[in-house]
């Protein structure tokens, strides 16, 4: 067991303790905040696979977050007015079922990631950042000009979607659902990091020549990582839309990409729990300082600066020290 494992265990405990306390004292608002943390952390877990493992500085993950959100919005809005999405060539109806929505969200963001990845992964450095940013912004402006689903104003969904066996309108139930999904994503990304694929992907981040010389193509590794990463962030987008029962083009904007990246950097790039800590810290700051001043993001900026300058491993890196390689 490494120090990081203990820290992660303590964080898990804390992450369960806070909502338990909020639940037993009847503070629904805190439960919603915790749900928000879990869903945003999930978006960060997605990005962390591209950024942390693959070294792919994607500044366009809002594209996947937004696609997930709009997958939810489109399916649920049609379902709530009983208006099919398409009648020809086959009948496609909307749905209020979370599992179906999640599947659609993940598949469509994975496909988008495949397309964006094929077009952007031939480049690197600042070009890659710019191309991913451009795709996100393209979708942002597209949804602004798409009146069918609210255009610039966005779209409200009146009732939260359903999950078999749960009443998702009860905050604690939706919270548990979000926690379970986050837990599964963390488990998956831990397995991924230690797998054959993870070894080759992290090697390609450190030295692409090395990977090529042993007969492995870095491009394929990065493309697969980008697709997995996009699908997870897309799932987070669908859940975030369900949390707010609202979608809008903002989900696609570069602010959103920046926020997801901030979670990862604050918590620790490439650290399993990095996005969790980052998202929790972000929401905590927003909650505590947002009430004091509308300019709370200035403090966030200072904190980010401090992390980038003095604590490159983020919060987890500072607490756990350099990652002990699994040798």
């Amino acid at each position: 067991m490494t120090r990081e494992t203990y820290i992660n265990a303590a964080l898990t405990f804390l992450l369960v303790l806070v909502p338990f306390w909020a639940w037993s004292t009847g503070q629904a608002y805190i439960l919603t905040l915790c749900t928000k943390v879990a869903i945003l952390a999930l978006a960060g877990v997605g990005l962390n696979i591209a950024l942390g493992l693959g070294g792919l500085v994607s500044f366009g993950h809002a594209a996947f977050f937004g696609i997930g959100g709009y997958a939810m919005g489109i399916l649920a809005s049609h379902a709530q007015v009983f208006d099919p999405i398409a009648e020809w060539p086959i009948l496609i109806e909307g749905t209020k079922s979370m599992p179906v929505i999640w599947l659609v969200a993940m598949v469509s963001s994975a496909l988008a990631a495949l397309l964006i990845g094929v077009l952007s992964l031939r480049t690197s450095g600042v070009y890659f950042i710019m191309i991913t940013l451009a795709f996100g912004q393209m979708l942002y402006y597209f949804t602004i000009g798409w009146p069918a689903y609210g255009g610039e104003d966005g779209l409200s969904i009146y009732v939260r979607n359903s999950f078999p066996g749960l009443n998702t309108l009860v905050p604690v139930q939706f919270l548990i659902l979000s926690y379970v999904v986050l837990g599964l994503a963390l488990w998956f990304s831990a397995r991924l990091a230690r797998s054959s694929f993870g070894l080759a992907l992290t090697a390609a981040r450190q030295n692409a020549d090395r990977v090529e010389t042993v007969g492995i193509a870095p491009f394929r590794l990065r493309l697969v990582a980008f697709v997995i990463s996009g699908a997870i962030t897309g799932l987070a987008g669908a859940m975030f839309a369900d949390l707010n029962r609202f979608i809008s083009p903002t989900m696609f904007s570069w602010h959103t990409s920046g926020e997801i990246m901030i979670f990862v950097i604050l918590g620790g790039v490439g650290r399993l729990y990095g996005p969790v800590v980052g998202a929790a810290l972000y929401i905590l700051l927003e909650h505590l300082l947002g009430g004091v001043s509308d300019y709370w993001q200035i403090f966030l900026g200072l904190l980010l600066l401090a992390v980038v300058l003095f604590a490159r491993g983020g919060l987890i890196g500072t607490l756990a020290g350099r990652e002990v390689a699994h040798g």
Binding site: L192, G198, A325
Partner: peptide, 30 residues
């Protein structure tokens, strides 16, 4: 040209993995 953050063994395992050619495995700890 080595993966500097890896252990020595990990670098060698990377080579063995390349030789075996089944890099697209996502679950089993390498």
């Amino acid at each position: 040209a080595l993966a500097m953050e890896f252990t020595v063994l990990q670098n060698a395992v990377l080579g063995a993995l390349g030789a075996r050619g089944d890099v697209m495995r996502f679950f089993r700890p390498v």
